[in-house]
Simulated scan of single mutants.
Amino acid sequence: MSVEVRVDQGAIRRLLRARGGPARRKLQQRVDRVARFARAEAPGSMGDYIVTEIRDGPRGLEGAVICTHPKVRLVLDGTRPHLIRPRRAKVLWFEVGGNVVFAKLVRHPGVQPNNFLARALRLGR
């Protein structure tokens, strides 16, 4: 007695990549979980800029959690101390303790890196 098994890799690949298929659904659940943690960990309004994406990558399905906030790189990497000067006006203005302050130059102390996306990935496993 003999048994022959043939694996149709193309059929398996199509099944795994199917729009409503079980692999895609499970991956979407995992990506959504990581995105929830990322939104909770994100500073300020950055959580509002977090989106998810499921796509076909070179090795199969890929899930991505993406922050599209224009300043996300500065938060993830941190910044060194730097000077801030006005670009379109003669002075900068901002509030400190409820008082409006005007300045021609601000010496920003820099910020520590805050890699909230990596933390969300670890928490969302």
Rank of each mutant, 00 (worst) to 15 (best):
I84A: 01
R119T: 13
V3I: 15
G98P: 02
L15V: 10
R85W: 10
K26P: 00
D8K: 03
E53V: 00
S45A: 13
V111M: 12
Y49P: 03
A64F: 04
Q29D: 07
R14I: 11
R55N: 02
H82V: 03
T52A: 09
R25N: 12
V31I: 15
Y49D: 11
L74E: 03
M1N: 05
S2A: 11
H69P: 00
A42V: 14
E41N: 15
A18C: 06
Q29S: 12
C67D: 08
R122Q: 15
S45N: 08
A89M: 05
R30K: 14
Q9A: 12
V96R: 04
R55E: 10
E62L: 10
R107H: 11
P81T: 06
A35S: 06
V34Y: 05
P43S: 05
R36F: 02
L27W: 07
A11K: 14
V75H: 09
A120C: 10
G63D: 00
G110V: 03
V75D: 05
W93R: 12
G98E: 02
R25A: 14
F102E: 04
A42K: 11
Q28N: 07
R119A: 11
P43L: 14
R73W: 03
V100A: 07
G63V: 07
G57L: 03
A40N: 11
R73G: 04
A64C: 06
L123P: 07
I12S: 02
L74K: 06
A40H: 05
D8V: 09
I54M: 04
L105E: 11
A40S: 13
A23I: 14
R119S: 09
D8E: 14
A11H: 07
L27C: 10
E41P: 02
K71A: 10
R73L: 01
G110D: 09
Q29A: 14
R24Y: 13
V31D: 05
D8A: 11
R17T: 11
P58W: 00
G20F: 07
V101F: 02
E41A: 14
R55G: 06
G97W: 01
R87V: 01
A23M: 14
T68S: 13
R55C: 00
G57W: 03
V96W: 08
I54D: 01
G63T: 05
R85D: 06
S45I: 12
R107V: 10
C67F: 02
E53P: 03
R59H: 06
V91T: 06
A89H: 10
N115R: 08
R39F: 05
V91R: 12
Y49K: 08
M1C: 13
P43D: 04
D77A: 12
R59P: 01
G63F: 01
D32G: 10
L121I: 14
A11P: 08
R33L: 14
R59M: 11
H69T: 02
V106E: 01
V91Q: 13
Q112F: 00
V7A: 11
E53C: 00
F94V: 09
I12C: 02
V91N: 05
D48F: 01
V91M: 13
N114P: 00
G63I: 04
V51A: 15
K26C: 01
A42G: 06
L92K: 01
F116P: 02
F116D: 05
W93T: 12
P58Y: 00
R87W: 02
S2H: 09
V91L: 13
V3Y: 14
T79C: 06
P113R: 07
S2R: 12
F94A: 11
I50E: 03
A64E: 07
V3A: 15
L76I: 15
Q112P: 06
R33S: 11
